[in-house]
């Protein structure tokens, strides 16, 4: 496959970098080439955070994603800023609890799910990012559920292993929404 370029963006604290890390670890578990690059400027200290993830069968060139195939947006400024940059044929996943999707592009697909609301309803505090990942694997052929689970197991540190079932549950909710 060609390189799949993914951009994740939202507020600092929403787990944007962590969700990106899960995708990166999925790539590792799936024996793909991959790169993960966070924004590390002042914006990560309380403002907007974003991260670039590239998944490929070939070595990755520039790890900086400017025109994503997949955009995962978790707040309005990120959606507004990046939706215009998505490649034609690309897919946009966003939290419809926080984002009003105003977009007149006919050449991309929008998948809005109320991930923040779903996380709150299911007692999964901070799980909005993972719910969106569930939706991503349902609507793309990026990774299988099996690989996603392996990725999560790998990225969650041993001291927080008790949170793994919650992450699995969040993936399931995202896949079914």
């Amino acid at each position: 496959m060609a390189t799949t370029e993914i951009l994740l963006a939202g507020f600092g604290g929403q787990g944007v970098l962590f969700a990106g890390k899960i995708l990166a670890y999925c790539g590792l578990m799936d024996n793909k080439e991959l790169s993960w690059l966070p924004s590390y400027g002042p914006e990560m200290r309380g403002g907007t955070a974003n991260c670039s993830v590239c998944i490929s069968d070939e070595p990755i060139g520039s790890p900086l994603v400017l025109t994503p195939d997949i955009l995962i947006a978790m707040n309005q400024p990120s959606f507004d800023k990046f939706v215009t940059e998505v490649k034609p044929g690309g897919k946009v996943f966003f939290d419809s609890t926080l984002i009003e999707a105003e977009c007149d592009r006919a050449d991309i697909q929008l998948f809005g799910i109320p991930s923040q609301q779903l996380a709150d309803d299911n007692n999964l505090k901070g799980g909005s990012n993972i719910i969106l990942l569930g939706k991503v694997i349902k609507e793309t052929n990026l990774f299988s559920l099996d690989v996603m689970k392996k990725g999560i197991e790998k990225v969650v540190p041993a001291s927080k292993a008790h949170l793994i079932p919650n992450n699995f549950k969040a993936i399931e909710i995202g896949m079914n929404s």
Binding site: K21, L28, E33, L34, S35, W36, L37, P63
Partner: peptide, 10 residues
């Protein structure tokens, strides 16, 4: 450089 320092790769 900062890009190489901050990025993750296998």
């Amino acid at each position: 450089d900062g890009l190489l320092g901050q990025m993750m790769e296998p």
